[in-house]
Design a protein around this nucleic acid. Sequence first.
RNA 1: GCCCCCGUAGCUCAACGGACAGAGCAGCGGCCUUCUAAGCCGUUGGUUGUGGGUUCGAAUCCCGCCGGGGGCGCCA
Length: 563
Amino acid sequence: MIRQQLAEWVQQAALDARAAGALEFETLPEFEIETPRNPQFGDFAANLAMLLARQARRNPREVAEILRQYLPAESHEWVERVEAAGAGFLNFYLKPSWAGEVVRHILVQGTRYGRLNLGAGKRVLIEFVSANPTGPLTLGHGRNAAVGDTLARLYEAAGYTVEREFYINDGENSLQIRNFALSVLTRYRQLLGEPATMPEDAYHGEYVKDIAQTIRTQYGDSFAEGDPETVLKRFEQIAKQQMLQEQERDLADFRVRFDRWFSEQSLYDSGSVQATLEALRARGYAYEHEGALWLKSTAFGDEKDRVLVRANGMPTYLAADVAYHRDKYERGYDLMIDLWGADHHGYVARMKAAMAALGYDPNRLHILIYQLVNLFRGTEPVRMSKRAGEFITLREVMDEIGVDALRFFYLLRSHDSTLDIDIELAQEQSEKNPVFYVQYAHARICSIERTAAERGVPIPDPATTDLSVLTHGAEVALIKRLADLPDEIARAVKHDAPHRLTAYALDVARAFHSFYTECRVLDAVPALQAARLLLTQATRLTLARTLQLLGVSAPERMEREAP
RNA sequence: GCCCCCGUAGCUCAACGGACAGAGCAGCGGCCUUCUAAGCCGUUGGUUGUGGGUUCGAAUCCCGCCGGGGGCGCCA
């Protein structure tokens, strides 16, 4: 709120200065209202002068001075003074009363605090997880789910209309699916006592046996005979369906819900794949070579052309995926976000090339690549799951350390950094564990409010309570962090960086714990007690909102287990 | 060989191209007759891998090199 106001003033000052002939420039550069690290540089600072210096052909400090002169003469009720300083910063010093106004603002906004209108109703599609229906979700998928879902929540908070979509890789010609079905079928036959051996490239996890067992329970021996191809097709359907259901369950328990489950096969059934190939051909970006149909992706910066239809007539995965993304563009989103694992990074160039070839703006498609996740138990790497064989499932880790801790840990690091998760640490109920640190702050607030209620302390009215008494260093520091929530959301959205929010949550918690230790709420004199109760309430709202965006619960109590 | 990510305090990591590079953990020293000590306060710790370049200003952008991880299929 205040940042926006300051930005408008600074911008207006620049325009006024130009109109008065005091400053020359062609275009107004995009500038920042930042929070100086050092409080001696004020509460907020604008860097416009430095960006304008070259165009204005003056040194930045002079430009800052000129801008300062063209700022509104009447000082705002919040602004104490403005200084041109350093290399050419414009530093804003706010009146002490500003802090109280922030608290009032947050309380008036209530649970709406942190809702922005950056998106102005623009539509965003976030496609994430999109795991193959040939196995349970893995630790890696969990990161995808946590990042994607929180990103979606952030975009919603920023005022976008968001849709979450899961692309089901259920193409009937997929070799993976076929192998998977064959593996299940083999296990099924083994259950029936037949000497069946697993195919090459089989799926060896225990869960394959589970599915076979389920089929046996449900359908008995009815697949023991019959046309092998028909039986296999049937197994494909059942196994796929079952995996999908399990994935959906895992995701729901991980607090991730999708608006749409988009089937790859539906693109074939509807003729969309065919139509897409024809469109590419018509535009001159698909050509025949050695019996295959190729996408001329090199025309748009890819390192080589890619096969769309194999020499045997079968379309590749790429063909369907291009059709899928074409479908997204045709649905008219302003922005489309894909979240892919690091092992798919080589795929980015060709997908963007394909969109360009179809005449779409590739910049509307953001493809986010997240790096690998490693699991540790203390210092010991965990490599395999009991149930899945070669990988660790989301379900196992979620069950062991809980959804709150896992989601928080997934979002603790930037998605383009490899992530190590230590199960022991995540379960530890101690100061080492950042999740508890944040949740504990929330629980402490609730505890104050409970005690206040028990003692019959009236709930102060934000409209009439004097908040100018909040001048203690710990109070002001806390309030400043609370005031940052809208900017934190804006930044996280701007950079597609949901992990910034965990850092913010930790900052707010830290500021609160410090306040808690230094400032008594309930035993303060009545006027101060009222103001501090409102500050406490504003902190609770801000923390709860932040945790909600992270998909982490905000507990009202946390009792330490007896040692 | 080519492509992507990473390299910052002993460890794990932050830092929209901005002012003196910050947290947590570990280490050291303090704080509970009080609203939850799962907490707080203080303190130690840095040539941002390396060499150039762009810029008023570089951990951040560009180029080279070194090291770690991942990927380079008519698989998905």
